[in-house]
């Protein structure tokens, strides 16, 4: 069953003269790891804000069409209810972390949802463990590295156990290995547990390792949506297509079929070797 259903959605901000979203159709279900990408200004951040109801509930403006999350119409559902279903993480964790310790940060959302203090402390413990933050529990967020801060931001959102996690360029300020760790954490700790993750991301060579689906927006519209390899191939010169995707299709043109589209150089090396082995037989 789809947990997000958007049909023919148009939106404009109170100040914008033209529609920022121009007829979006989109469905997503549990267990998907969706990478949302496209040029700056294409409307992807706006789209993300629809998914947790910040648009239109907080930003105002004009919304047309249907947007349902967990079967709730986002225009008619207060944001505090949507917040239970959709966790949101932004590019700059500093803007999202307010408290003096990691532990307090994680407890805050739970307190807001009105859990008993016993349940809060159980959930905080569980979350600290699950996100490998036990050793950092008494640290202030500003004492942490960018990657650790982003992990805390994700943990504090996921402590509330939403079905959907939406992240807006969570790795833009991280070094490559920290970025890879965050994207992997989402896969292993969130998507593998049957949740839906939608991540806005430009670093497609890293995202390709984990994505189950890629959605590309241009000028307020979704122009491509589907299996990562085919989707990326179809939007060359709009987004930066990872080199192994290009190589895969160049080999295909020469009649070399690898058994699967490779998600990383390691996988591609293995597939090329097994293709060579098969030919030697």
């Amino acid at each position: 069953m789809a947990v997000i259903e958007i049909s023919d959605l148009y939106y404009r901000y109170p100040v914008s003269t033209d529609w920022v979203l121009k007829g979006i159709n989109f469905r997503a279900k549990r267990g998907e790891y969706i990478i949302l990408t496209g040029p700056s200004g294409c409307g992807k951040s706006t789209f993300a804000r629809v998914l947790n109801g910040l648009i239109p509930n907080f930003y105002g403006g004009k919304l047309r069409g249907i947007a349902k999350v967990m079967n709730l119409d986002i225009s008619r559902t207060p944001t505090y209810i949507l917040a239970k279903h959709v966790g949101m993480v932004f590019q700059n964790p500093e803007n999202q972390l307010f408290f003096s310790t990691v532990e307090r940060e994680i407890a805050f959302g739970l307190e807001n949802l009105g859990y008993s203090s016993e349940e809060i402390s159980d959930r905080v413990e569980e979350t600290l463990e699950r996100f490998n933050l036990v050793h950092l529990r008494n640290k202030a967020p500003y004492e942490l590295s960018g990657g650790q801060q982003q992990r805390v931001a994700i943990a504090s959102v996921m402590a509330m156990d939403p079905e959907i996690l939406v992240m807006d360029e969570p790795t833009a300020n991280l070094d490559p290995l920290s970025a890879l760790e965050i994207l992997k954490l989402v896969k292993e700790n969130i998507v593998s547990r049957g949740k839906l993750a939608i991540v806005i991301e430009h670093r497609l060579e890293l995202a390709l390792r984990f994505a189950t689906r890629i959605v590309v927006m241009v000028d307020g519209r979704i122009i491509a949506d589907g299996q990562p390899f085919e989707t990326l191939q179809s939007v060359e010169n709009i987004v930066g297509v990872p080199k192994i995707v290009k190589l895969y299709y160049r080999l295909l043109n020469k009649g070399v079929y690898l058994k699967n589209p490779p998600r990383s150089p390691e996988e591609m090396a293995t597939y090329i070797c097994s293709e060579l082995g098969a030919r030697d037989d």
Binding site: D175, P176, L177, L180, E205, L206, P242, K243, I244, L247, P265, E266, M268, A269, I272, C273
Partner: peptide, 15 residues
């Protein structure tokens, strides 16, 4: 240097 190698050099090295 804790860098992720570029894809083509990485793949070539593995091959």
């Amino acid at each position: 240097a804790r860098l992720i190698p570029p894809q083509i050099p990485h793949l070539s090295y593995l091959l």
